[in-house]
Amino acid sequence: MAGSRHGHRPRPSALRGRGRPRGRERHNAHGVFFIVEPDGAGLESITQLIQEGRLTPTVDRVLPLIEGRAAYEALEREHQRGKIVLHIDD
């Protein structure tokens, strides 16, 4: 089923593109959803795109690894505007 990870369907207005222009339309921006398998070559390609400014990841927040449970719970109960990143100390 198309929709979010919780199985909710997108609102019909979102599918038809009606209503007020969204931020991306007002700023002539676009987004693409994609999944990358975690392999070295794929990660290097993404890193290069970020460094070139051709890809801008959207990060909601960065939390220390010790707060991993809180991050997971936030995924279940909140709407994020980007990814939640867990920072691993060196």
Rank of each mutant, 00 (worst) to 15 (best):
N28H: 11
H8I: 04
E73M: 15
V59R: 11
V62A: 12
R61Q: 14
R18K: 07
G3S: 09
H8E: 14
I50R: 04
L63M: 15
L43F: 08
I50T: 04
G3N: 09
R24T: 07
Y72T: 04
R77S: 12
M1H: 13
P12A: 12
K83N: 13
G40K: 11
Q80C: 10
R24S: 11
R11V: 03
Q51G: 04
R69Y: 04
A2M: 10
F34G: 08
R54D: 03
N28K: 05
G19L: 01
E76M: 11
H6A: 10
P21K: 08
H87G: 02
F34T: 07
E52A: 13
M1L: 14
G40C: 04
E37D: 11
G7W: 02
R61K: 15
E37G: 05
G17Y: 00
A70E: 15
L75F: 10
I50M: 06
P10N: 05
E25T: 03
I50C: 06
E25M: 06
L65S: 06
P21C: 07
L49T: 01
G23K: 05
E78Y: 07
G82L: 08
T58G: 04
G23Y: 09
I50A: 03
H79C: 12
A71T: 01
T47W: 03
I50F: 03
R9S: 14
E73C: 10
A71E: 04
I88M: 11
Q51M: 12
V85K: 10
S4I: 07
P12D: 12
Q48D: 13
A71H: 01
V85S: 09
I66F: 06
V85E: 08
G31Y: 06
P57W: 11
R9W: 13
E44M: 05
G68F: 04
A29I: 03
D89K: 13
F34S: 08
I50D: 00
E25K: 04
I35L: 06
S4W: 10
H27C: 09
E67C: 13
I88S: 04
L49Q: 09
H87T: 03
G3F: 09
G7C: 05
L65H: 08
